[in-house]
Design a protein around this nucleic acid. Structure first.
Length: 364
DNA sequence: AAGTCGGGGTC
DNA sequence: GACCCAGACTT
C-alpha cells in the first residue's frame, strides 16, 4: 500500500465508525479509572462476557480509592468466573500504587501506564488513546488481524519482528487528532466485519486497500499455529464436613494458577498411587488429618488454558487428627462459601453437594 | 522465544 | 470437539 493512502484509509475508517460504532458501558464515560478497569477485564475476554462483571465491579469499587481500600478477597470475589485471576491481583496492586504514589490519579502517558502491574503496551495504548485522547497505537487481537490482512502479512504474527511491523501499521492508521476514534474504530471493525472466520469483506470500508482480499487469503491471516493436544490430568477433591456441618476449604497460593482463590482440598496422583490413596496422603501431609475416603459422588471435566482435568469428588470422613497446616484454610458454612472466590469447577462440585443434601432431605 | 494463565460463546 | 477472545508476565 502506497504511503500516500494512509490518510484516505483513516478517513474511510472514521466515516464507517460514525455509522457503525458499538455501544458499551465503558464508552459512555471519560473516567480514566473506569476505562482502565474495562481494558483489564477485556484482556483475552469478549465484550459480552465482560459487561455484567464490569457493572458489578464498578458498583462495588467506584474509584481508585475504593479499590485500593478493598481486600484482595473482595476483589477476587467480584472477579470470580471471569478467569485470568492475575488480572484482578494486579489491578488491586496497581490501585495501591496509585493511591500511594499518584494521588489516586491514572497516569496519562503510555510509559507511566506500562509501569503499572497488568498493563502492557497494548492496554497502555488503549487507555492513553481512549481515556486521554492521545494519538497512540494499540494492537489487540482485532487490530492485529485487521492490519495483518490489510497488508497481507503471512508470517506468524507472534514473532517479535512481525509484531513490530504490525505496531507500525497500526500507528499509520491513526487519523491525526483522532486517536480515540481510530482505536475504537479498528476494534469494532475487527470485531464485526474483519472477523476471524467468514469476514464480511463487501461491507468493509477498507476493502479497496486490502492486500489479502484480492489474493483470497484473508481467512488464513493471521496464520494459526499448529494445534497441540492438551494434556489431561485426573484430580481427586475432598468434601469433608465437621460436626457443625462446615466444609473444609483452603486458599491457593497467590501466585500461579487460580492464585488466591479458595478450593476444596485435593490432589493429583503420582506414579504408583491410586487416586483415593493420593487424596488421603495429601490430607495427611497437608492438613495433618487421617480421613476415610468414602464414595465418589461427582466427576467433572474442566478445561484450562494449557491442560484439561477431570475432578473426582469424594465424600470423606475425618477419623483422626486436628486440622493443622502451613497453608491457609478454614471450615466454612454454606453461607460463608458463597462469599469466597472459588474456581468454577469447585463451585460446580459444591452445587452437587447442595443437590445431594436436598435429595436426602437434610436441612442446611 | 516459549510457556503460563480461565472461562465461555460459537461454529 | 476446536477455535477464539480490547494480552501480560515469567522463564
Amino acid at each position: 500500500m502506497g504511503s500516500g493512502n494512509h490518510v484516505a484509509v483513516a478517513r474511510a475508517l472514521m466515516a464507517w465508525f460514525r455509522r457503525s460504532a458499538r455501544r458499551m458501558d465503558w464508552r459512555e464515560t471519560d473516567d480514566p479509572y473506569r476505562i482502565w478497569v474495562s481494558e483489564i477485564m477485556l484482556q483475552q475476554t469478549r465484550v459480552s462476557t465482560v459487561t455484567p462483571y464490569y457493572r458489578r465491579f464498578l458498583a462495588a469499587f467506584p474509584d481508585v480509592e475504593a479499590l485500593a481500600r478493598a481486600s484482595l478477597g473482595a476483589v477476587l470475589k467480584r472477579w470470580e468466573g471471569l478467569g485470568y485471576y492475575s488480572r484482578a491481583r494486579n489491578l488491586h496492586k496497581a490501585a495501591g500504587i496509585l493511591r500511594e504514589r499518584h494521588a489516586c490519579l491514572i497516569p496519562s502517558s503510555v510509559d507511566a501506564l506500562m509501569a503499572l502491574p497488568g498493563v502492557g503496551r497494548s492496554t497502555a495504548g488503549a487507555i492513553a488513546a481512549i481515556a486521554f485522547r492521545q494519538d497512540v497505537p494499540i494492537l489487540d487481537a482485532n487490530v492485529k488481524r485487521v492490519v495483518a490482512r490489510l497488508h497481507a502479512v503471512r508470517e506468524d504474527v507472534r514473532r517479535a519482528s512481525v509484531e513490530r511491523t504490525l505496531w507500525e501499521h497500526s500507528r499509520r492508521t491513526i487519523l491525526p487528532g483522532k486517536g480515540r476514534e481510530t482505536a475504537l474504530a479498528m476494534m469494532d471493525l475487527g470485531s464485526s466485519v474483519c472477523t476471524p472466520r467468514a469476514p464480511d469483506c463487501p461491507a468493509c470500508p477498507l476493502a479497496k486497500w486490502c492486500e489479502a482480499r484480492p489474493l483470497g487469503i484473508q481467512e488464513s491471516i493471521p496464520r494459526r499455529p499448529a494445534k497441540k493436544t492438551l494434556p489431561h490430568r485426573d484430580r481427586a477433591v475432598a468434601v469433608i464436613r465437621n460436626r457443625q456441618g462446615k466444609i473444609l476449604v483452603r486458599r491457593r497460593s497467590e501466585s500461579g494458577l487460580l492464585g488466591g482463590l479458595w478450593e476444596l482440598p485435593g490432589s493429583g496422583k503420582t506414579a504408583g498411587e491410586t487416586l483415593t490413596g493420593a487424596l488421603a496422603r495429601e490430607l495427611r501431609e497437608g492438613f495433618g488429618i487421617d480421613v476415610e475416603v468414602d464414595e465418589t459422588f461427582a466427576a467433572l471435566r474442566h478445561g484450562y488454558s494449557h491442560f484439561r482435568v477431570t475432578l473426582h469428588a469424594y465424600r470423606c470422613r475425618k477419623t483422626k487428627g486436628k486440622v493443622r497446616s502451613s497453608r491457609e484454610w478454614k471450615w466454612a458454612t454454606p453461607a460463608e462459601l458463597e462469599d469466597l472466590a472459588m474456581p468454577r469447577a469447585d463451585r460446580k462440585i459444591l452445587e452437587q453437594v447442595k443437590i445431594n443434601l436436598h435429595e436426602k432431605g437434610i436441612s442446611k
